[in-house]
Amino acid sequence: MTKSEIASIICDRVGLSKKESAEIVEIVLEEIKNVLASGTDVKISGFGHFMVRSKNSRRGRNPKTGEGITIEPRKVVTFRASQLVKDQLQKD
């Protein structure tokens, strides 16, 4: 499933035009990205939480050359699905 398929569902259910639906899907995703980029978590009840986590630096290895390298501290986004979504997946 892609953005455009989500936009068609919005178009059917909300009655916005195809173009407006595509734009609004983009706005929703852009808004979430902006908030996460500012370091704030986004919690969508009934769906899940997008969390910004800080990773410490660690010793890694270049798998190709076997060379030891230091992986710098960084920030990553993790997603924790809500229990509702997890339960939905078990029904099969």
Binding site: M1, I10, R13, V85
Partner: peptide, 27 residues
């Protein structure tokens, strides 16, 4: 806006429940 936001997330979870994959470029 409320219906749009809810629809986006329910579309994603429904697709997951159907065994599908959702790819949102840039996201």
């Amino acid at each position: 806006a409320e219906v749009v936001v809810s629809t986006v997330f329910s579309a994603i979870s429904d697709e997951l429940a159907n065994g599908g994959r959702i790819e949102l470029r840039g996201f």
